[in-house]
Simulated assay, not measured.
Amino acid sequence: MTPLHQQICQACMPDSSPVMDDQRASLMSQLPGWQCLLQDNIWQLKKSYRFSNYSQAMAFANQVAELAEQMRHHPALLIEWGRVDVYWWTHCIANLHYNDFIMAAKTDQLNVNSG
């Protein structure tokens, strides 16, 4: 099977199926450090990335933004001094879609490549 970070997001519509509980557990095993949490009644993926200063955090957030534009799938980002929190979920289904797991893996690749 192709690693998540090498896969491409597919178009998602409001009637797209969310990732089921058994799939979610399997996919989470491929995303070290990510949390799956229920926030505002929506399942989301979250990870915090640490940096030495605000400029590095902002540079990483900009990389995530560029990736999001390329894949047409956009996260919520919280940027603070030395830290970026990334939240992935699929807005049109208000839940987790396979695309979110792909994007989480791609986000980790950005972090690896930026260090």
Rank of each mutant, 00 (worst) to 15 (best):
R83C: 01
Q10T: 10
H97N: 03
S17H: 11
A57C: 05
T90M: 00
Q44G: 00
Q44M: 15
T107A: 05
K46W: 05
L96F: 04
F101E: 15
Q30A: 11
L67Q: 03
F101R: 13
D40W: 01
R24K: 10
S55Y: 02
A68V: 14
D40F: 00
D100H: 12
Q39T: 15
Q63I: 02
T107G: 07
P75H: 06
A65D: 10
V84P: 12
F51E: 01
F60W: 02
C12T: 15
M13C: 01
A25D: 14
L27Q: 08
S29H: 09
Q7M: 07
A61N: 04
Q7G: 08
D22I: 10
A68Q: 07
M71L: 07
G82K: 02
V64C: 02
L38A: 08
V19C: 01
P14E: 14
D40E: 15
L45R: 03
L45S: 10
Q70T: 03
I8G: 01
M103Y: 04
V19P: 05
C9W: 04
N62G: 01
Q23N: 07
L110D: 07
H97V: 05
C36I: 04
I93H: 08
C92H: 08
A59G: 06
L4S: 06
Y49M: 04
T2D: 05
H91D: 07
C36A: 14
D22M: 12
S48C: 11
M28E: 07
V112R: 14
N95D: 15
I102C: 12
F101N: 10
L77S: 13
S16I: 06
D15R: 04
L4N: 05
R83S: 11
P75W: 12
A59V: 00
I42E: 14
V112C: 10
A68Y: 05
M71G: 05
V84E: 05
H74G: 09
H74W: 06
Y87N: 04
I79E: 12
C92E: 06
R83M: 07
I79G: 06
Q7V: 07
G33A: 02
T107N: 07
D108M: 12
Q109G: 01
G82S: 00
Q7A: 04
E66R: 08
W43T: 11
R24I: 11
T90G: 03
S52T: 02
C36L: 08
M58P: 01
M28K: 11
C36K: 03
P18A: 15
A105V: 05
I8C: 11
N95T: 06
I93R: 10
M28Y: 09
K46Q: 14
H73G: 13
V19D: 03
N95H: 08
P18D: 09
R83Q: 14
